[in-house]
Simulated assay, not measured.
Amino acid sequence: MIKYCLPFALGTLLLQGCVTSTVDEMVFNEPVEGIGDATVVILGRRHASDYETEPDFIECVGDHISSRDKTITVVDEIEFVNSLYPWFEPRTAPLHPADIERLLEQEPVAERMRELKTEYMIWIDGVTVRSDSAGSMTCGIGPGGAGCFGFGTWSNDSNYEAVIWDFTDRAEVGRVNTTASGQSYMPAVVVPIPIIAPVQGTACDGIGDQLLEFLSSEY
């Protein structure tokens, strides 16, 4: 478990936006020397009706991987889904590794996968939610100008799981789970000052680092 705190001093009051993060890893078949010229695609699960894995989180994980190992090519999620329409739309996307064989029986899918050189597909399922809001704030305009006074606080909780599929072996080869939670604050003495705990960013870094250990020859 890792805890991060972002201090902020307001007069004599020290406020902190803290994030607590945990990462669990379970890898079944780890590459020895990276993935060569093959590519990776990272996709968000969006088949559930009550939430979707945020596209900006998927983009964050992809950027984390490609920025730290320039030899890894991460295929853009939107480009991948559009080029393989309709097989990766929410209602038709494969849910289990056993579906890989069925997918590759579709010649347009198999051909496009060969063109993209996609060896690993990483499904990320999860969401960041806001809860436990408290406090109040009042804003107004008077003879001396406009201003806000008050104090607010809220919690954010992230829970994401990444499942790695190997299209060469037609199998699931690993998974990573990360959770993060944090408390953010909004004090206001004339001007509201947000003190945001970077919960989603911390979860992105945690899951990105673990995926790099799996994919990269440099880790």
Score class of each variant (00 low, 15 high):
P94V: 13
P108T: 13
W123R: 10
A134K: 12
G135V: 06
R130N: 07
E119R: 14
I78T: 14
R102M: 06
E119K: 15
D99R: 12
K117E: 01
L103E: 04
T92P: 03
R102F: 07
S133F: 12
L95F: 12
F80N: 00
I100S: 05
E101I: 13
G126W: 10
A134F: 06
E115H: 07
L95I: 11
P94R: 13
S131G: 05
W87H: 13
E107G: 07
R91G: 02
V109P: 01
P108G: 14
S83F: 01
E79C: 00
V127K: 15
E101Q: 14
A110S: 14
Q106E: 13
E115N: 07
W87L: 02
P97T: 09
F88M: 01
T128K: 10
A134E: 09
E89P: 03
I78F: 05
L104T: 06
A98W: 03
P90H: 04
I122H: 07
H96N: 07
T118Q: 01
V127N: 14
F88C: 02
T92D: 05
P86C: 05
I100T: 04
N82F: 00
M121Y: 00
P90F: 04
P108M: 12
T128P: 12
R130L: 05
T118E: 01
W87F: 10
D76C: 08
L103N: 08
R130H: 04
A93M: 13
P86I: 06
W123Q: 02
V129F: 06
D125K: 12
E111V: 15
S83V: 02
R130I: 05
V81L: 05
E101C: 12
R102H: 06
N82P: 01
R102G: 04
V109G: 04
S131P: 06
Y120E: 00
V75L: 02
P86G: 11
R114V: 12
Y85I: 02
D76I: 05
P94Q: 08
A134Q: 11
R102S: 13
D125H: 15
M121Q: 04
M121D: 01
A134G: 10
E79P: 00
D132T: 15
I124V: 15
